[in-house]
């Protein structure tokens, strides 16, 4: 019997190694796997490269992980947002590396990694500072740059429902980066609000097939804060 459901957050994040690249789902607070991030803080892995759209806010979650000195590098599209105080302090002090990636390129680099595509050409960022050092090539009269897939060791994601096979549904804009991150990691861990019996989730509603998911933990999180 396949059963990806684990009983505790500690079990969910067990075995994440120092030096791992960790994808963290969410856009703002919506679809963000808060409980898994807290569990990772407890778990202790360090020297991490974290990939997320934003660089955390306030002093909890990803911001707390950074403040504790556990994040070597952050890869994101929008580090500076209201409340991104910890990131800004660390960055100014030279204590964290930053790789800025345009949001669509970030999503596509993850999707490509999940789909076995090592690199792709895109017009996004061509001719800008973010194209530095990247191969440029012309197709049909337009210039494109080469971007590499972004594969990770671990993905921490949030979903709405799951079954024991790891099939996932999402709620409204909580979907965001979660499905592409699920594809792009060796170990995908989903924090979900509802566990359903196998077969109970309408197959038409499954957005992330369990094939991409290794562990599921139920967390009664309630609604994200706005």
């Amino acid at each position: 019997m396949i059963n990806k459901i684990v009983q505790s957050l500690a079990e969910a994040v067990a075995g994440i190694k120092d030096g791992s690249t960790v994808l963290i789902g969410g856009f703002g607070s919506v679809g963000q796997p808060d409980a898994l991030i807290e569990a990772l803080i407890e778990q202790g892995a360090k020297d991490l490269t974290c990939v997320a759209n934003n660089a955390g806010s306030g002093r909890t979650g990803l911001a707390r992980l950074m403040e504790l000195g556990r994040v070597r590098k952050i890869i994101c599209s929008f580090p500076r947002s209201s409340g991104s105080v910890v990131f800004e302090e660390l960055y100014k002090a030279g204590k964290i590396e930053l790789e800025i990636v345009p949001q669509g390129t970030l999503a596509e680099r993850l999707r490509a990694a999940g789909a076995g595509i090592p690199a792709f050409y895109t017009a996004t960022a061509q001719g800008t500072l973010l194209a530095r050092g990247k191969e440029e090539r012309e197709f049909d009269g337009r210039l494109y740059i080469l971007e590499r897939a972004l594969r990770a060791d671990v993905a921490l994601i949030e979903a709405w429902e799951a079954d024991r096979w790891g099939n996932l549904t999402y709620r409204a804009s909580g979907r965001n980066f979660n499905p592409v991150m699920a594809m792009a990691a060796d170990l995908t861990i989903a924090q979900v609000q509802h566990i359903r019996e196998l077969g109970e989730i309408d197959p038409e509603r499954v957005i992330t097939p369990g094939v991409y998911v290794q562990r599921v933990v139920r967390v009664d999180r309630g609604s994200p804060w706005v």
Binding site: S77, F78, R80, F87, Y91, Q103, G104, A125, L129
Partner: peptide, 21 residues
């Protein structure tokens, strides 16, 4: 998206994707 080459943490978001696409 950035006020200088040495901007302390510029934030690009989706602007380059939208601009090109």
């Amino acid at each position: 998206w950035a006020t200088s080459e040495n901007d302390t943490a510029p934030a690009v978001g989706g602007a380059m994707d939208l601009g090109a696409g």
